[in-house]
């Protein structure tokens, strides 16, 4: 079949909400866009383990330690689901890992901020996972089958992450003055970077229009960001802490909260590699990859050796 006809069939499927599967014909740019988005998403899950892992050994109780461990383990799992989804598009795992470690691939810039106090673990669960869920729920309907299926699994697991974070902050906010101040300080530091997680404003987002046309994304960055602000305001009120934005107020006319201007210079600066922890995060990933090399080699060598001994021992010999 010629390419024009294939493209027509592809567009038809998208139009009719028929999922695209790995062996189906797809335009090169669709494939590229998915590889970029899914691999960045996978990298974010993997790098995202680092700021939280920082507090596993210092969690204030066994209950908190067990839940944080489970959460970090989930993030590893999410990274693996996503890497596998990306691999169905004909990119190898090694290539993706190499893109991350060489600094060519991006990951969510939120993970380039440090976790300074225990309250940050609460703020990450509440805000960072909250923003991620807001982004990810519509991706369960993404037009590419393997991505959508991975997202369904991820979203199911992610809701405990947000609740455990909120519970940490709730406990701090009901505690001593110092504990409440810790919670407020964490909100102050994580609020704006969380809003940046939705990406640039719609008019500055180069991929959004095409991505929505192909039904990978279902909502624009600004739509999702607005939804997030609306739900967070009430959740902050329940905690009794204040969102650090003097311009945040209810707009009767629009039915939404208005909010202040995001510092996009900071956003682009962190993306370019100048955030507080960019170097540290990448270094941690590189070290972990290099120090684990002998394990991967040993596992392969063992599998090879066993295969050989099975051949020698088989009855046909």
């Amino acid at each position: 079949m010629d390419e024009a006809k294939e493209l027509e069939r592809f567009d038809d499927k998208i139009e009719q909400e028929i999922r695209i599967e790995p062996k189906d014909w797809m335009p090169d740019d669709y494939r590229k866009m998915l590889i970029r988005q899914i691999s960045q998403h996978a990298h974010s899950e993997i790098v995202g383990m680092l700021p939280e892992a920082n507090w596993i050994t210092r969690a204030p109780s066994l209950r908190r330690k067990a839940t944080l461990l489970a959460k970090v383990q989930d993030e590893a799992g999410h990274g693996l689901y996503l890497y596998c989804a990306a691999e169905t598009l004909n990119i190898s795992r090694e290539e993706m890992v190499d893109q991350l470690l060489s600094g060519r691939a991006k990951y969510s810039s939120i993970f380039n901020y440090p976790t300074l106090s225990w309250a940050d673990i609460g703020a990450i669960g509440w805000l960072v996972d909250g923003a991620a869920i807001m982004n990810q729920v519509p991706l369960c309907r993404a037009s590419y089958g393997p991505y959508a299926r991975a997202m369904v699994r991820i979203c199911k697991e992610e809701s405990f992450h947000q609740r455990q974070g909120y519970e940490i902050l709730l406990t701090l906010c009901r505690g001593s003055e110092e504990q409440k101040a810790m919670a407020q300080d964490a909100l102050n530091r994580w609020w704006w970077p969380s809003l940046m997680m939705f990406g640039p404003n719609d008019d500055a987002s180069s991929h959004t229009a095409q991505s929505m046309k192909w039904k990978i994304k279902r909502f624009s960055n600004d739509e999702l960001r607005q939804k997030f602000v609306d739900v967070c305001k009430e959740q902050a009120d329940i905690l009794g802490i204040t969102i650090p934005d003097p311009d945040l107020k209810w707009n009767e006319e629009s039915g939404h909260y208005d909010f202040g201007k995001i510092n996009w210079d900071e956003f682009w600066n962190v993306i370019k590699g100048n955030g507080p922890c960019n170097k540290e995060r990448l270094q941690a990933r590189i070290e972990s990859h290099e120090e684990g090399a002998w394990v991967r080699e040993a596992a392969l060598a063992y599998a090879e050796k066993k295969k050989k001994s099975e051949l020698v021992g088989s009855p046909s010999n």
Partner: peptide, 19 residues
């Protein structure tokens, strides 16, 4: 349910349990 990488079948089953 999905896929994963592993050196051999035993490791694949163990990883599948965890993932």
């Amino acid at each position: 349910v999905g896929s994963l990488h592993a050196a051999d079948a035993k490791m694949a089953i163990e990883n599948a349990r965890d993932v």
